[in-house]
Amino acid sequence: MKMITGGAFQGKTSYAVHNFGILAENIKDGEKCGFDEVFGAKCIVNYHLLVKRLIDNGVEPMEFTEQLCSENSDMVVIINEIGCGIVPIEKSERIWREQVGRCGCIIAGKSQEVVRVIGGIGVVIKGGI
């Protein structure tokens, strides 16, 4: 399992395509794909948005993430960094932000390689060669 993170619009998906051999047609988008689809996906983008949809649909995101990691341990997960700001006033946004942090820690913990992409450049922060 591999994880790619970083801010928005940094070239994370492009990094997955070029460095991890992911084909565009094999990428599932966490913003809109079915929850079942990610279990067979080679690559999932916008995992932070999937977390939001899980919360909105009453699914416990950490349990879902644990299960996904154990059933699809060869996937590449792309998740934005969203936690580096002021605590949101809106409770639902606070919960989402915290759940993204915790789910991201689960995925990073189980990944052999974690890359942080800044300005299109990947910095390997865990594992790698």
Binding site: E81, I82, G83, C84, G85, V87, R97, E98, Q99, V100, G101, R102, G104, C105
Partner: peptide, 8 residues
């Protein structure tokens, strides 16, 4: 340092 719930 770190963001929200980052394991810091």
């Amino acid at each position: 340092s770190g963001g929200s719930k980052c394991g810091k």
